[in-house]
């Protein structure tokens, strides 16, 4: 018979089991990054090759290029996806008509909920050589057509810009919540002291935002090698592999399409490890400087 406390542990059991099977067992599976893994031989039967897969990763030109692409795209995304939402939240915070504010929020939150399958389809249609941007909008301003989806540098730009377009609205939520939490008497006091709106923003609003910005920024550090698989997979094509291929898409092609399991797992492990180290370091920073705790 389960005691009153016992039932609590029983409730945890399904979650613990699911997590063990689908999260911890794959971690054990990471050992195949040290193997020349053959599916028909299995983990126990495949040949051990030591660090060979990792050596290959750091010797092959294509995998080095992929790591660099990932780092570049992910880091620019982290910065853009912090700056744009903060600025937008500050601008939106100035609006006094509640209805207008609500409408804006409804519109800008929407793209977050659509998948990259949908948005990728839209982006490709609009930006392709036959799309409305190249056939109507650019010619209106006398600009030559741009190969957004075929030129590597433009492709990177498209990836970063459309990611920001999808996520900036939703990312403003936490900042708006922080802005709404500012004590109004601070503004009244500033007003009495003769401060204009600019001074109020500088001395009251921004300092109040700093802690949440630190939290968001540090937690984003765990994503330094997360350039966005769903987005890139749905946007890229062989023409832009050189500048736009990232670790996750590379792992998919090398691992699942070309069956080089050991190599693909090795580069995947490299990515997971870097992410892990970054997030631990970031969490330490966040808890020290912004007093942030998960629980």
């Amino acid at each position: 018979m389960l005691g009153r406390k016992g039932i609590l542990y029983a409730m945890l059991l399904p979650g613990i089991l699911l997590t063990f099977i689908f999260h911890y067992l794959p971690m054990i599976g990471l050992v195949i990054s040290f193997q020349n893994f053959k599916p028909w031989l299995g983990i126990t039967g495949s040949e051990w090759v030591g660090w060979e897969n990792f050596q290959t990763v750091f010797e092959r030109e294509d995998s080095l290029q992929v790591i660099w692409n990932t780092l570049f795209i992910a880091c620019v995304k982290i910065i853009v996806n912090l700056v744009v939402p903060v600025v937008f939240a500050l601008l939106l915070n100035e609006v006094r008509q509640a209805r207008f504010k609500k409408t804006i929020q409804t519109l800008v939150y929407l793209p977050h909920f659509l998948s990259w399958v949908i948005l990728g389809g839209i982006v490709i249609d609009i930006l392709s050589s036959k799309g409305i941007v190249n056939t109507v909008i650019l010619p209106t301003f006398g600009i030559d057509p741009i190969l957004f989806m075929a030129d590597g540098n433009w492709f990177r730009f498209v990836v970063i810009a459309t990611d920001s377009w999808k996520e900036f609205g939703f990312a403003t939520i936490v900042f708006l919540a922080a802005l709404a939490g500012i004590d109004p008497s601070l503004y009244e006091a500033a007003e009495v002291d003769g401060a204009g709106r600019w001074k109020m923003t500088w001395h009251v609003t921004l300092p109040a935002l700093v802690p949440i910005v630190i939290v968001v920024a540090t937690l984003a550090m765990g994503n330094v090698l997360n350039a966005g698989f769903d987005q890139i997979f749905n946007l890229y094509n062989p023409l832009v592999y050189e500048k736009g291929d990232i670790i996750d898409t590379f792992v998919y092609r090398v691992g699942l399409l070309s069956s080089q399991f050991g190599l693909a797992t090795a580069i995947g492990l490299f990515k997971s490890l870097i992410g892990f180290i970054m997030i631990i370091a970031a969490y330490q920073l966040a808890s020290r400087f912004a007093n942030y705790r998960i629980f």
Partner: peptide
């Protein structure tokens, strides 16, 4: 914070 990634999940 840490995960096995695509290939181990697929094999699982």
């Amino acid at each position: 914070l840490f995960n096995g990634g695509l290939i181990p999940n697929y094999i699982l």
